[in-house]
């Protein structure tokens, strides 16, 4: 067992973990943050996307021990003071989700995308999200949602960005 200390959604957790424990299982099973989903275990579907020290990361191919000392945000930590993040608001408003399984990862990836590029074109959004698969929406409304979120955030929505 290896001792790790990780800050997740603003709270610090100290745990002894099996060195082979995947970060996504640490989040889901140890911390019971089940919003981060697993679709493929190989980094291809993106359902497990989180933020780690400001970077967009697929938590199914990181070990929990690699997260030692880092600061992590999951979908559960995205809204603040009970107010939805503009991306959450936008996915709701524009019907950017159906079954919702890819959604936490998709929103986390989109969040990273908008930090890098606050005013992306449709093509930039499509390319920016190509690490995340959705089987329900054909991405049509996901693109619309990200565009709308970008608008909200640029309009100086007080909760815009991280």
């Amino acid at each position: 067992m290896t001792h790790i200390s990780v800050e997740v959604n603003g709270k610090t957790y100290e745990r002894d973990v099996d060195p082979r424990l995947l970060l996504v299982h640490f989040l889901r099973e140890e911390l019971e943050l089940t919003g981060t989903n697993i679709g493929c275990e190989t980094s291809l579907c993106g359902a497990c996307t989180i933020h780690m020290d400001g970077k967009t990361v697929k938590s199914c191919t990181q070990l929990a021990v690699q997260a030692d000392g880092s600061s992590i945000t999951t979908i559960e930590g995205l809204s603040t003071d009970g107010k939805l993040h503009p991306l959450q608001e936008a996915f709701w408003e524009k019907h950017g989700l159906q079954c919702g399984y890819c959604t936490p990862g998709m929103i986390m990836a989109a969040c990273g995308l908008l930090e890098d590029n606050p005013d992306p074109s449709e093509q930039q959004i499509r390319h920016g999200l190509k690490g995340n698969l959705c089987r329900c929406t054909g991405y049509h409304n996901i693109v619309k949602a990200v565009q709308y979120a970008a608008e909200l955030m640029r309009a100086g929505n007080p909760e815009g960005g991280k």
Partner: peptide
Amino acid sequence: IKRREDPSLITGAGQYTDDLK
């Protein structure tokens, strides 16, 4: 009208089978 399903799904609160213990 907007979907009432969404608030739990966009915040990670939705419970899928593998989330259950």
